[in-house]
Design a protein around this nucleic acid. Structure first.
Length: 325
DNA sequence: TTGTGTTTTATTGCCTCC
DNA sequence: GGAGGCAATAAAACACAA
């Protein structure tokens, strides 16, 4: 503190402040201080071991006079006094009372106007510069505490969002497996429909040759497989048609591909028994969120631009989503 | 008692505002 | 250009385990 710069620097016009301090009339305690500390003492900080410049010590005026009188009285006498005088640069902590008073003042207003600073300095028997420094450091502490709080708050928020996300992820997986299951059922049904269609064709082409059952029975596995393969192609093209044609409902596209034109006898009508309209609607609704708002980590950015309409789902799932939607 | 980590007081340099 | 605020930092004071 003996650093000449501190009390003679341009930062604090200490000569002016010292004049102010010297001109103050003892005792130091102000009206405000008296109302704050009801001890009855003229100054609650007379026992302060606060750091005071050697210059102030020698001057021994104003508050500092009280300060040293009290120090002499409260502490260990001349030896300590000598030690004190010979170590003017040592930092000395503010007393609990001083800190308490400053804290209260800080709660009221964490910025320090010059008048308030001088008043506080008078009240506490400190240099205005010390008060300013204390407020500055206090603001820094407050800020770091605030940052800590903000961090905790953000962390809690993040954890909550993460939990939500994970729960949604599970739900999505569940729904995907449900969709896969339903798709399998539909494909199976379509396969059965294909066999029936082939049998119908055979029956129409060779009405007199064999009974329908015989014809169906005479078809080998190979023909079944080829029918199945062709049906798969039909389904694929139908699905792609659906996706391209803004069709609101999958059944139109799929069954238009399967239906023989003009064949009113075709009996494979859309069966809603397994997937009722309500369920369908519910499914569509349930599937809507991930369809519209894919999770970032689901999006494969390595996909070419044209696959960006997958909405973050793997290509093989694309048909499911468009089909289900 | 001592080493070590934390807190508090103070300094320094830079920046903004008037 | 001066005053004051802030971030970074130094250093003394303090707390505490070993």
């Amino acid at each position: 503190m003996a650093d000449g710069r501190v009390f003679s620097s341009a930062r604090t016009n200490t000569s002016n402040l010292n004049i102010l301090l010297q001109n103050q009339t003892p005792p130091c305690a102000s009206e405000s201080l008296d109302t704050f500390f009801l001890s009855g003492s003229s100054s609650p900080f007379l026992g302060s071991r606060s750091m005071v410049s050697f210059e102030d010590v020698q001057r021994g005026k104003g508050c500092n006079r009280s300060f040293f009188r009290s120090f002499d009285h409260d502490e260990n006498g001349d030896d300590d006094m000598d030690e004190y005088f010979h170590q003017p640069e040592k930092k000395r902590r503010l007393t609990a009372d001083q800190v308490h008073f400053l804290e209260k003042s800080f709660e009221v207003e964490n910025k320090l106007e010059p008048e308030r600073k001088i008043q506080l300095a008078k009240d506490l028997g400190l240099q205005p510069r010390q008060v300013a420094i204390w407020f500055q450091n206090r603001r820094a502490r407050w800020k770091s505490k605030q940052l800590e709080k903000d961090y905790d708050s953000l962390q809690a928020s993040y954890n909550s969002l993460k939990a939500d996300y994970e729960s949604l992820l599970k739900e999505k997986e569940k729904l995907k497996s449900e969709v896969a299951n339903l798709t399998e059922k539909v494909l199976l049904r379509e396969k059965q429909g294909g066999n029936f269609e082939q049998a119908e064709t055979n029956r129409l082409q060779e009405p007199q040759q064999k009974p329908l059952s015989d014809s169906a029975a005479s078809d080998g596995e190979g023909s079944k497989a080829s029918i199945g393969a062709s049906k798969q192609e039909d389904i694929s093209s139908a699905k792609s048609d659906i996706f391209d044609s803004d069709s609101p409902h999958y059944t139109d596209g799929v069954h238009s591909a399967l239906l023989e034109p003009g064949d009113s006898s075709y009996i494979f009508e859309p069966d809603q028994s397994d997937l009722s309209q309500d369920e369908d609607d519910n499914l569509s609704k349930t599937l809507l969120p991930p369809y519209v708002f894919p999770k970032l980590e689901d999006v494969d950015y390595s996909d070419p631009p044209e696959s960006s309409c997958n909405f973050g789902f793997p290509v093989e799932d694309h048909a499911f989503w468009s089909w289900s939607y």
